[in-house]
Every structure is written in C-alpha cells, then in structure tokens.
Design a protein around this nucleic acid. Sequence first.
DNA 1: GAATGTTATATAACACGTTATATATTTGCA
DNA 2: TGCAAATATATAACGTGTTATATAACATTC
Lengths: 168, 168
Amino acid sequence: MVEDVVRTLGFLCLGSRLRRIGERLQADTQQVIDEAGVGIQAGQYPFLAAIDRAGPLTIGELAQAVGITQPGVTRTIGQLLELGFVDMQSAPDDQRRRLVSLSDKGQELVDHSKATIWPCVAAAVADLCGDLDGPILEQLAAIEDGLAALPLIRRSTVAGPHALSTAQ
Amino acid sequence: MVEDVVRTLGFLCLGSRLRRIGERLQADTQQVIDEAGVGIQAGQYPFLAAIDRAGPLTIGELAQAVGITQPGVTRTIGQLLELGFVDMQSAPDDQRRRLVSLSDKGQELVDHSKATIWPCVAAAVADLCGDLDGPILEQLAAIEDGLAALPLIRRSTVAGPHALSTAQ
DNA sequence: GAATGTTATATAACACGTTATATATTTGCA
DNA sequence: TGCAAATATATAACGTGTTATATAACATTC
C-alpha cells in the first residue's frame, strides 16, 4: 500500500485535500439524494435554498449567495430552468438583471427536501464530524477515515420511494 | 449584501464548502508558485512529491498516493511527461504497468521546491489555520475570513526571480 | 496451450469550476 | 441629447475531477 502523500504533506497540500474531501462528501450526498428519488444534483440545491431563503435573486446575487463565479451561476440556473424548478424574468426597472424565482415545482421540491432529505444529510454529516474538535488536519483525517469506515449514506435513513430496499 | 447560504446551511453544504475553500486555497497557492517563477501547476506537485518520497510509482500507485482516480493520473502524468519533469517506462516484469520516475529536471524542481516554495506555502497555510481549534464549521469560517482578510500570498515570502517585486 | 477472466492503463464523454471576452442595458457627463 | 464608461449577463475556452468503456497484457483453467 502506497502512502497518501496529500495527507502526509499536511498544510502544504491542504487545498488539494479540502477539494478531495469536498468532492467525496458531495458524491456521497448525491447517493442520498438519488436514493430518495429526487431528480436533482447535489450542487444545484444551494441555488434553490438561496432563493427559498431570500426570495427571487438575480444571477449576480446568486453568485454571492452560493460563492461561485457568475458564469457558473448562469450555467446552473440554465439547467434548473430546463428542469422546470425555477423561472427567470428581467427585472422591471433594469432590463440587464434577471430575476430568478422558484417555480411551483421548485417550491414543492424545496418544501419536500426541507422535510426529508436535508435533515437526513445534515444529520449524517453531523454524525460524521459534529463531535470533532482539535487541529484541522486531525479533523480532516478523522473525516476521511470516517467516510472510509461508513459512507454517508449508511449514516442516514431517508424515507423515500426506495426506502424498502435500503432500510436495514 | 446577500447571505452566504453555503455557510449558513452548515453541515448540509459541507461538501460544497470544502470544495470551495480547497479551490480558493489552491488558486492562492498557484499565485505563490507563479511568483517564484516555477512553471508548474499546484495540482501537479503532489505527483512529483509522491515519486520523490517513494521512488518510481505506477499509474495505479500514483492514484492511491494522490487520492484521485486513475484517468486523472493518466492525464496529469501525460502533462508532466510533456513538460519533461517525469519519465515513463513499462515495468520489466509486467508490460501493463507503467513506471513513472522523476527526470533529472524533475528531481531538480523537487529539490529546489523543497528548499524554497514548499516551506513558504506550508508556513503561509499554517499561519492561516495552524492555531485554529474547535468545531470544524467554526474553523472553516475562520479560514474563509482569514483568506478574505489577507490572501495566502501575502502570508508568505518566497525568494525567487521576482522576489524584489514582492518583498515588503 | 487455447479460451476465458482479471488487471493495468488509455480514451471518451461528461460535470462543474475557472478566466477572458462579448453583448446589451443603464448611467453619467460634456 | 448623445456618447463614453460602467454594470449585468451570456458565451467561449480551458482545467481537472469523475464514470464508463476499450485495449493490451497477464493469469487461470480445462
């Protein structure tokens, strides 16, 4: 077995390491979402949550809210438009701004998710790292080891269309 | 100003958040590398470091060492081959395996980096988060705030070809 | 020892972030 | 008023991760 250099190098590779763990966590979260039978990508949720919390937002405001650049927002909102979860219209006072709002279908998805998937994911992640403390490198090691020992989806129980096949 | 939903949602968006911080850290690290006049990508360093530490490694071993999937390794090693930092040859006993080793130029780069860039990056990251403690969400908030207050490159001092322009 | 399965790497297609730049609208000032 | 600058979004090109699959070499089994 080859040593994990990214872990060994510590602070020097912290960027790579955070990315790597984030990708792993998002992939695991995606499993929970798929399990619940919701046809959406994990990375699209923050956009819907932002609009749900703040009301209709422009592309630029969404970029601030979600913390990515404007072209990334434009693309993801394009997908959510295709999927019918959001609507977009020009702001009446400024034709450059596009106001993005939740469609009925989008609001339903958010309401359903708030009641089922989101608490489960949050609880599973909290189970993974909620009690951790101490230096960040040690916590990250614990998170990686924890995910290897028991993936996120095994730490959550979502009631959904496929619940029977996964309930233990 | 719009609220940062990814931060607000806490454990629910931890994956997105780790990715986002990791990307930011890597981009900041890239600035330090560029400043030092080394023509390499931040994400390529762990590959060189792995071979430096363990000796020649196969594609599969590199995937383990760096913690990404095999196609990702194949691509990055292709780039490092183009750049002349590594050599690749089939293993004598098993023609399927490709042994990747540091070229003279690659070994020089690693030796130089070990003496200059790497300690600076590690020190800058340690300055950012070395003294942190407590729950991970709080530490992540401190890291994001810290980067916004003083980017990584302002926390490091690299002696390099452009040192004059950046020394304070 | 030829067929079959397994393993290691390469390639293709895609996801989703970035930077750089184009376009459309609004703002501000001579 | 009309034109230059600023702002908001869209688009293009790229980086780097993923999964799925193809290919080549080795291992096994009858």
